[in-house]
Simulated assay, not measured.
Amino acid sequence: MSDRTPNPLQRLRYICGGTLPESMSGWVLNDLTGPGAARRYLLRLMIPLLVVLSLFLLVPGPLWMGGAMMALIFLPLMFFAIALTYVYRRYRLAKHGLDPALADVAARSRAALERDAYERSHGRG
């Protein structure tokens, strides 16, 4: 796996759901599982969404009415986006030909450390 980074056109295609060449698998793996992966995922979803939803502010009437309409769409969407982050990351890993189990490597290693600490403290290790 190479650490090549995508050019701006490839990055835009990746953000829109496309796949990158196999030579960029290392970058994809870091993007989906590395530090800040959840933050990047939410920002990539939130920024274009807020741009589109800001059109509700152009609706005639009080400003709070447009804000309320934005919130009616934005809040449930963000709730489901946060809830499905893990599923999305596994899907993107599989789409790029990587093992979907890599999405939870950090959680599994953390659980193994906790299990070892528990077993040592209770005389099993």
Rank of each mutant, 00 (worst) to 15 (best):
M46E: 06
M70N: 02
P76F: 08
R90Y: 01
L77C: 13
A71G: 02
V105C: 12
L93D: 00
I47Y: 14
L55C: 07
H122E: 09
L50C: 12
R44W: 07
D99Q: 10
N30W: 09
I15F: 05
L50E: 08
Y14N: 02
S109L: 13
G97Y: 10
R110H: 15
L77Y: 14
L84F: 03
E114L: 15
G66M: 03
A106H: 11
Y88M: 02
P6Q: 01
F80M: 06
A117V: 09
L77H: 09
P21H: 07
T19I: 00
M65C: 01
R89E: 02
P76C: 07
H96L: 00
A107D: 14
N7D: 15
R92L: 00
W27Y: 15
V105T: 15
A111N: 13
A106F: 11
L29A: 09
R108T: 08
I47C: 15
D104G: 15
G34N: 09
K95A: 02
I15D: 00
L98M: 14
A107N: 12
P35Y: 11
N7T: 10
Y88C: 04
V51G: 13
R44D: 00
W27G: 00
A83Q: 12
G26L: 08
A81C: 11
D99H: 07
S2V: 06
L58M: 07
R110Y: 10
M78F: 11
G125W: 08
S109I: 13
R89I: 05
H122C: 11
I73T: 10
P62H: 04
D3R: 14
A68F: 06
M65L: 09
T5K: 15
T33I: 12
L53A: 04
L72V: 06
P35M: 10
L20M: 00
Y118M: 11
G66E: 00
L43E: 08
G97A: 10
S25Y: 02
L58P: 02
S25E: 03
Y41M: 09
R92V: 01
G34Y: 03
P60V: 00
L43F: 14
I47E: 11
L84N: 05
E114D: 14
D104V: 13
M24V: 06
L63I: 06
L75R: 09
G18L: 01
H122D: 11
I47W: 13
L58H: 03
M1N: 08
L77V: 13
S25Q: 07
P6W: 02
L84S: 01
L102K: 04
A37C: 13
V59M: 07
A107M: 13
R4A: 06
R90Q: 08
L49C: 11
A101C: 12
L55Q: 08
T33Q: 12
R110T: 13
L32V: 02
V28Q: 03
R40I: 03
M65F: 06
Y41Q: 05
G18V: 01
Y41D: 05
M46L: 15
R40Y: 05
G97K: 15
I15A: 04
M78D: 06
D3V: 05
H96N: 01
G26Y: 07
A94P: 04
Y86W: 12
L63P: 04
T33S: 12
L42E: 05
P62L: 01
D116C: 11
H122M: 10
A103R: 03
